[in-house]
Every structure is written in structure tokens, then in C-alpha cells.
Amino acid sequence: MAPSDDDSDPKPLLPKLSRRAFFTGAGASALGATLVQTAAEAASTAAPAVHGPGPSTLTLTLNGRPVTVQADPGTTLAELLRNQLGMTGTKIGCDRGACSACTVWLDGEVAASCMTLAFDARGRKVTTIEGLAKGDELHPVQRAFVEHDAMQCGFCTPGMVMSCAALVERNPKCTLDDVKQAVSGHLCRCGTYPNVFKATLAAARSNGKGKGRS
């Protein structure tokens, strides 16, 4: 069968407007308003906006600052942070949510950024290891990690610090079991867990005594 050339009945995308209707109808601004309303109605009842598969705009708050970037929907938050936003402190280990090296805070709660699509961070507050210190003042957990030698190769460290800092912020009276629970998803193949426990408990104690970030 030959392809049909029949275009006698194309489906109009917008209500047809004749010159007469345009000039005899209400003013141009009123017409504009009608068109806008029609489009909005169509959007709410029919197909919603489609993003991708190519890059699409998204906005999030990164370490306290609003950021707008282009990313395709298949981009993970970890990839976005490392490849487009320069936040290479966030590490990608297993890329499956099983090692937690990629841990960041999403609205203050720990998240595996490798298993979070960047689109799921839209409009949310993302805190990375780079956003933990206040200027030159390290977060108590960061300082305690230094003082208690809580790292060897350092690859798991940014993620570990984010989990331990989230715990200390949430529960300054945390116990050893709480710390173990907080880092239960983290793999450290150097085996620095005992010093991570010591550091976090020390940070919690100093945090409790001081005025938060001493």
C-alpha cells in the first residue's frame, strides 16, 4: 500500500482563528489570556510534561546555594555532583547503594547519591562533604576523624563522615550501638571502623558540651 498523502483533515493543535474572529472578537490581550488558559487546562487534564531522554533543566540547593543545571533523567545525583558541579568529595564505590561511599544529605537525611536520580533531588537541599565545614571551621565529626585517625586510604571517609555527622546532629547523646547502626551500610576495606566509632562518640561528647560547632 502506498503511503497516504492525505492531509485534508489535520488535527488542529490550537483552536482555529480566522482573521475575522481575531479582529471582531475581544481585544488582543483578552485573546492571549484565553489561549494561555486553554494551554493550562490541557496541561492539567491531558499529558504532563515529558523530560528527556536528552538534558532537561533542574534546580536544587547545593550546600546552601541554589543551583540550576541541565541533566538527562538517567543522571544520578552522584554523577551530577561529581561531573557537573565539581563536588568530587562524594565518592562512587559500588554504584549500587551497597557501600555508601556516595552518602550525602538530602533535606538533612542520609541518602545514597548513586541510587538517587538527580531529578529526585529537584527542589531539595543537598549537602555534600564540601558543605559540612563552616568556612575554615571543621564540623566536630570531621575534626574528630582527624584526631582519632579514623581513616586510612580515605575513600570511604567522606561518606562515613556524612553518616556520622547526621547521627551527631540528630542525637548528640548517641551510643556506640547508634554509631554502629549509622555506619552499618558503609564498607571500609581498610577496616577503620573502631576509630570511626571512637571519633564519632568523641565528637558527640564535644558537641554536647560546646555550643554546637566549637
Partner: peptide
């Protein structure tokens, strides 16, 4: 991972 389209559903009916 192959690229894909993303749509935000606003209601169960729409989804």
C-alpha cells in the same frame, strides 16, 4: 543504563 523519558505523575489516575 539506557536513557529514558521522565514524567511526573500528579495523581494515581494520571499515573
Amino acid at each position: 543504563m539506557q536513557s529514558f523519558e521522565w514524567v511526573d505523575a500528579e495523581s494515581v489516575e494520571q499515573a
